[in-house]
């Protein structure tokens, strides 16, 4: 992919983020109820509410409010939590690692299991491997992640106390301890995506196998591992990467439920509490972070396309 195209993609991403910032800001304007009243509490006087409103700048024109808020965002200042009065950025920074780690590990689980199962099934269409993968994949897609999480906890943490049932520890406290806390939530979150990926990969491999260029490769004497590695995987990867990008976004949403089951205080619980408390600076922070992550994932997917598919490079 040419540098010019990368710059164009980056520009597009920044534009999307700016639009998201406007929507995020307006979202709060559209929420029913006055944040100033919420902060002041039920027994506050009118004067008190007015004072808080002035303090937060809510009495200024909307455009000016947005300008002030956006300037803050650009300087890394998202305001203060209405409930704890701590800075939004540091609160999110505290909760983010657990969530990001679990989501990333879930994605890893999904890719490793999903892609390998899908390739195996696609290459052996109609065999027992194929049927097993298809059945398990349907099951995996049908199972809600919270239920899967509970089953995993009961199997691997309660019945057989091999792994901790709840909580998250930082990797600095030891790789083994860290991994033991990550395995179950990541698996619970990632298996549905693995199932989705397996089905998709199977379809893509099956499709690529019917392509004339695979026949050509066979006509040149290619077969087995060579054929799979050189011709089938790369061509199958193009549509699979698209699904992977979509699924990555979904995982980031799904992690909320898994965090709840495993009692991990990550971004998920932060987001839920913020919504319940109408803690709008926190909500804004969370939405902005989500948008940045999704845009980043899309950017990575776009770049990966260019790497996998030479047609995109010149497009």
């Amino acid at each position: 992919m040419s540098p010019r195209m990368i710059i164009r993609r980056l520009g597009g991403s920044l534009l999307v983020l700016w639009l998201v910032s406007i929507l995020t800001f307006l979202l709060v304007q559209l929420i029913p109820g006055d944040p100033a009243e919420v902060i002041a509490g039920e027994n506050a006087t009118v004067a008190e509410v007015a004072r808080i409103r002035t303090e937060l700048g809510l009495d200024k024109p909307v455009l000016e409010q947005y300008f002030n808020w956006f300037t803050g965002v650009l300087h890394g200042d998202l305001g203060h939590s209405l409930s704890t009065n701590r800075s939004v950025v540091s609160t999110i920074a505290e909760a983010a690692p657990a969530t990001l780690v679990i989501t990333t590990m879930a994605l890893l689980v999904a890719v490793v299991i999903g892609v390998s199962a899908g390739v195996a099934a696609g290459l052996t269409q109609g065999s027992w491997v194929d049927r097993a993968v298809s059945t398990l994949a349907t099951l995996g897609i049908a199972m809600p992640s919270f239920w899967l999480a509970m089953v995993l906890v009961s199997l691997f943490a309660l019945t057989n106390p091999w792994l901790p049932a709840t909580g998250y520890v930082d990797i600095r406290e030891g790789f083994g301890v860290w991994l033991s806390h990550v395995v179950l939530p990541a698996t619970a979150l990632g298996l549905a995506t693995a199932a989705e990926l397996a089905r998709h990969t199977r379809g893509c491999v099956a499709d690529v196998l019917t392509r004339p260029y695979v026949r050509t490769a066979r006509a040149r004497g290619a077969s087995g591992a060579w054929l799979v590695r050189k011709h089938i995987l790369r061509n199958s990867a193009i549509p699979v990467v698209t699904v992977l990008g979509l699924q990555a976004g979904r995982l980031f949403g799904g992690v909320i439920v898994v965090e709840a089951v495993f009692g991990i205080s990550g971004l998920g619980s932060l987001a839920i509490n913020s919504v319940l408390q109408r803690n709008y600076p926190m909500i804004q922070g969370y939405v902005l972070l989500s948008a940045v992550i999704v845009v980043l994932i899309n950017l990575i997917v776009d770049l990966a396309y260019g790497w996998i598919n030479p047609k995109v490079r010149t497009a």
């Binding site: 050509t216 006509a219 004497g221 598919n309």
Partner: peptide, 22 residues
Amino acid sequence: RVRGGPVGMVFQEPMSSLDPTM
């Protein structure tokens, strides 16, 4: 060993018969 060795083959549609990613 025969395919691509002592016997070569050329197909009808070169566009779809060549691997687009190679």
